[in-house]
Design a binder for these strands. Structure first.
Length: 416
DNA sequence: TCTGGGGTCCTAGGACCC
DNA sequence: TCTGGGGTCCTAGGACCC
């Protein structure tokens, strides 16, 4: 048996840990640039605020209903995530961290699973302040579904063990759950299934997997098997390196100058470089893209792909390529709203030794260690690529952010 | 006026090969 | 007049996830 444990309204719960007066109050957390609602407390959901709602449309509503609004504070959320994951890890024999707020645990050989997971809930709450829900089942898809039931039906007390629930009651639950709740069934597939008369999870469970595989994809076939307790999706407890690395951001204000774009892209080159080095990866290709407001009729986007002669991991080499990229895609008098890079064709530094005949040329940047030690000693802004500061108008707005309570000495809570 | 960011996997179709 | 068949690899784009 496996379980899926996830944090309830994770970002909202993180804010509450450090501001307990918000317990029971409606909260939303906004995306970058305070663009739209990406997390809501139960109270906010009950008020009818939809996931992804643009903030400018709901701002007045939030004020009249006393909803507490936060800019997203990813430094805080990722630190809280590591704490929660560390605690949960000890409750399974293997752990797959699936996202910032959820993990699968292999519970093989553990007795009294419902009690075991209730215990985990209690300890996670006690150690981190974060409330969680748990779904227990033989497969991942069913565990996800059980987790959904645990959240929806209060009598389950936040832990739903399908084995304990039994086949008859499980099927009953699946008969009153919409097929769109299944993990991997998105909007498009759900619409098509509905047209075919498959509206509930139970109807999907008893559908013909081979037939639906032809009409949809092998994914849906696997999902059907998983709904029938036949395991198709393995628990992945080894951390695979990224296949691509993206750094991108909408601008706080529209940018029309080449310098503005170059400045923002230089920032992304630094971010991407950092991430590559953390994982020991080198890149052979990079796509640079810029686009205008995607909600406008005159939406316009352009991109260019660059192939490097050598595999690189230094932001300096990435930055050098940016000028050449902008020469190809920059056009004046356009109100750009977003820029970014996608780093692909990644190889691991270990491949350097093994790929004797595959011509893997890694180009190391000897200056990197020096730059990093300067940053470490004098602060991360002590030394920069010149183009980083050409223009600051692209910087994002996030005026409603809480403190970095757990990672910044100046953010520590004072108790008086 | 104002609408996020970072990922993965699958499929169809073209290029290419024998 | 008549112009194959089978396979692999790569890429772009779609769908999905949190």
């Amino acid at each position: 048996m496996i379980c899926l444990a996830d944090c309830n309204n994770f970002y909202a719960s993180c804010e509450r840990v450090f501001q307990p007066r918000l317990e029971g109050k409606p909260i939303i957390i906004l995306s970058n640039n305070d663009g739209c609602a990406i997390a809501r407390s139960n109270e906010t959901k009950a008020l009818g605020i939809k996931m992804g709602a643009p903030y400018f449309e709901i701002k007045d509503f939030c004020e009249t209903h006393g909803i507490h609004v936060f800019s997203s504070n990813y430094t805080l959320y990722s630190d809280m995530s590591s704490r929660v994951m560390e605690v949960m890890k000890s409750f399974g024999i293997r752990q797959e961290i699936y996202s910032i707020d959820e993990n699968f645990l292999d519970l093989t050989g553990i007795p009294e699973l419902t009690q075991h997971c209730q215990n985990m809930r209690k300890i996670v709450k006690q150690y981190t302040g974060i409330p969680i829900c748990v779904g227990i089942a033989p497969t991942k898809v069913l565990a996800k579904l059980a987790n959904h039931l645990a959240k929806k039906y209060p009598f389950l007390n936040s832990v739903c063990n399908l084995e304990e629930l039994g086949e008859e009651r499980t099927n009953k639950a699946l008969q009153i759950t919409a097929v769109s709740e299944v993990w991997g069934v998105g909007r498009k597939v759900a619409e098509k299934l509905n047209l075919m008369g498959i509206k509930t999870v139970y109807q999907l469970k008893i559908a013909n997997p081979k037939q639906l595989s032809k009409l949809f994809s092998v994914n849906l076939e696997r999902i059907i098997y998983e709904l029938n307790s036949i395991q198709c999706l393995e628990l992945e407890d080894t951390q695979e390196p990224n296949k691509q690395i993206v750094s991108s951001r909408s601008f706080g204000q529209a940018v029309s100058t080449r310098d503005g774009l170059l400045s923002s892209l230089t920032y992304h080159a630094e971010q991407a470089g950092k991430k590559m080095r953390r994982q020991g990866l080198f890149a052979r290709q990079m796509t640079v893209f810029v686009n205008t407001n995607r909600f406008k009729d005159d939406y316009f986007s352009s991109s260019v792909n660059i192939v490097f002669p050598n595999a690189i991991n230094s932001f300096r080499y990435l930055t050098q390529a940016l000028n050449q990229a902008l020469d190809k895609i920059y056009q004046p008098n356009i109100a750009y709203k977003k820029s970014g890079l996608i780093i692909t064709d990644l190889i691991s530094s270990e491949d350097e030794m093994t790929d004797l005949f595959d011509n893997v040329n890694i180009k190391h940047d000897d200056l990197l260690p020096t730059l990093e030690s300067i940053k470490k000693q004098f602060g991360k802004n002590a030394i920069q690529v010149a183009s980083a500061n050409l223009s600051g108008t692209w910087q994002m707005t996030n005026n409603l952010m809480s403190q970095k309570y757990t990672t910044d000495i100046n953010g520590i809570i004072e108790v008086s």
